[in-house]
Structures are given as structure tokens and as C-alpha cells.
């Protein structure tokens, strides 16, 4: 095969995409079937089997597909131009994630600055106050207009306890990940392992504290998904962020295994950089989230 810089590697047929399509179909179809049967008040074994086999197919697909790509890159099939394709691809993927969070932050903004004041009788559409004349619009909204359907919250999470610790954890993890990257560029393999392990530990600690916080919210503060728009936006934003930290931790874990296996060179380590971009992105989302969801 021609390895001149002009040659762009076009992979031959691959069975991973169709496996991925079937896996996605089973995962999402199984989720839909499960929710659908729960709505009818049943427990459906069939739908759970579909869901879990879907998840397993997806996991297998991810493993196989990435293994395939790693094997190809280690054989030197990839040119510089192809490296750029991966870089552009990852950047635009992160942009799509930015827009996903943007929509949820936008919803929070709209509710706080338009919908709730109107329900409380202020502003251009304050006539909406006639729906629930006893309702007062405050933020954080502890008590929704209809407290029977949406039971009130006792107290919200204090941002200066667990959340501020979490902020420190995530900020530190971004720093240690950068140190790991620096070590990688200098070829200090031992230091990469050290800093990467610390980063992963910080990420997992964050997740553990987030679980503690959720338990506290549900068990002691009556802050739940069902407690009106405050609970809904709180759990949606922190929840999706948590999902992203989980994905990021899995990525870091895979990177760590690969470092132990001796992958990555000083010059070529795009997977590492992509993982780092993702982690920094999740970190930035958290900073915005800490500010507008917890503090303000």
C-alpha cells in the first residue's frame, strides 16, 4: 500500500456499522418498550431482554470498532490528513453536544425570566396569574403553582457544600489531565500513568458525590423530578452532565489501559487528545451549571 501523504486510507467493508445500527435499534426500542409497559403498570421481561441485549451489542460494537481503528492506526495506515478528519470530526461532535446542553440551559433561562414571572403576575403576559391566584413566583421555586400534583421542596441543595467540592474536583481533574498530556508529549510514561489515574479517580469521586447529593435531595429535601420546574431543570441538567462525566470516565479508563499497553507516541496520540477535549468540555459545562443552576 502506498503510504505517501497524498494517500487517504479508505477502509474496506466493515460489519461494525450495521451491528451498531441493530444495537442502537434494540437499545432505544427496548427502552421505549420498557417505558411503554411501565406506563401500563406492567413489568415486561421481553422488553428488558431487548434493552439489555441492545446495550451489550452497542458495547461490543464500540469495543470492536475502536479496536479496529486502533489496530489500523498502529499499522501506520493513517495519514496526517486522516488525522485531521478525526480532529474535525471530534470537534464538530463536541459542538453538537454543546447545542444539546444549550437547549436545556435555554429552557432554564426561559422558565426563570419569562414563564415564572408571568405566572406570578408580572410582565407582558402577567395575565397568566389568574390561573393560580395564590401563586408567587420566586427562584428557587420551592412551591409550584399546583402543589398537589407537584409536591413542594423543603430546601434546595446548598451550593457551598457538596457542589463546591465537586467543582474543585472537576477543575483539578482538568489540570491533572493536562499534566498527563504534558507528560505524554515529553514521553514520561510513568508520569502519564500517575496523572491519568489521578484524573480518573477525581472523576469517579465527583460521580460518587453526585450520587450522595441525589440521595440527599430525594430522601431529606423532597427535591425530586416531580417537584415542579425547579426539580425538573435541576435533575435534567445535572443528570445529563453526570451522564457525560460517566462517558468521560469510561474514555479516560480506556486511555489508561492503552497507556499501560504502551500505546501512543509523543507525536501521535489523537485518541488521548480527543478524550481530553471531551473531558474539558464536560468541565466547562459544569462551571456554567454550577453558576446558573446551583449558585444564582
Amino acid at each position: 500500500m502506498d503510504h505517501s501523504p497524498e494517500h487517504y486510507y479508505v477502509p474496506p467493508q466493515s460489519h461494525w456499522p450495521i451491528i451498531g445500527a441493530v444495537g442502537l435499534f434494540c437499545t432505544l426500542g427496548g427502552t421505549a418498550l420498557t417505558l411503554h409497559s411501565m406506563q401500563q403498570g406492567q413489568v415486561s421481561l421481553f422488553s428488558q431482554i431487548i434493552l439489555y441485549s441492545g446495550v451489550m451489542i452497542m458495547a461490543g460494537m464500540m469495543y470492536g470498532w475502536f479496536a479496529n481503528v486502533i489496530a489500523e492506526t498502529r499499522k501506520g495506515l493513517y495519514s496526517r490528513q486522516l488525522d485531521f478528519s478525526f480532529r474535525f470530526g471530534m470537534s464538530w461532535f463536541i459542538f453538537s453536544e454543546v447545542m444539546f446542553f444549550f437547549a436545556f440551559f435555554g429552557a432554564l433561562f426561559y422558565v426563570r425570566f419569562f414563564a415564572l414571572p408571568w405566572l406570578g403576575g408580572e410582565g407582558d403576559k402577567g395575565i397568566a396569574h389568574m390561573l393560580w391566584p395564590d401563586f408567587t413566583a420566586v427562584w428557587p421555586l420551592l412551591s409550584a403553582p399546583d402543589t398537589e400534583q407537584f409536591p413542594p421542596i423543603k430546601e434546595i441543595i446548598n451550593p457551598w457544600h457538596v457542589p463546591v467540592i465537586n467543582t474543585v474536583l472537576l477543575l483539578t481533574s482538568s489540570l491533572t489531565l493536562t499534566l498527563a498530556h504534558k507528560a505524554l508529549k515529553l514521553g514520561k510514561r510513568g508520569m502519564i500513568k500517575l496523572w491519568l489515574t489521578i484524573t480518573l479517580m477525581l472523576g469517579l469521586s465527583f460521580l460518587a458525590l453526585q450520587v450522595v447529593e441525589y440521595l440527599e435531595a430525594y430522601q431529606h429535601l423532597d427535591l425530586t423530578l416531580r417537584s415542579g420546574i425547579y426539580g425538573a431543570t435541576f435533575f435534567l441538567l445535572t443528570g445529563f452532565h453526570g451522564v457525560h462525566v460517566t462517558i468521560g470516565s469510561i474514555i479516560l479508563f480506556v486511555l489508561l489501559i492503552r497507556v499501560f499497553k504502551g500505546h501512543f507516541t509523543k507525536e501521535k496520540h489523537f485518541a488521548f487528545e480527543a478524550g481530553a477535549w471531551y473531558w474539558h468540555f464536560v468541565d466547562v459545562v459544569w462551571i456554567i451549571l454550577f453558576t446558573v443552576v446551583y449558585v444564582l
Partner: peptide, 25 residues
């Protein structure tokens, strides 16, 4: 994807994004 996710939450998980009774709209 975000808007259908909020729908899903309202339908199955008791949130109130699109329900003024819970402070949504």
C-alpha cells in the same frame, strides 16, 4: 433531541417542563 427528551421526561418521569401547574410552560 433535547425537546423530545423533555417530552419523554414529562410523560414518564413526572417533570413539568411543559406544564404550567408545575411552573413550566
Amino acid at each position: 433531541a433535547a425537546v423530545v427528551t423533555m417530552m419523554l421526561m414529562d410523560i414518564h418521569f413526572g417533570t413539568s417542563f411543559f406544564n404550567a401547574a408545575g411552573g413550566g410552560d
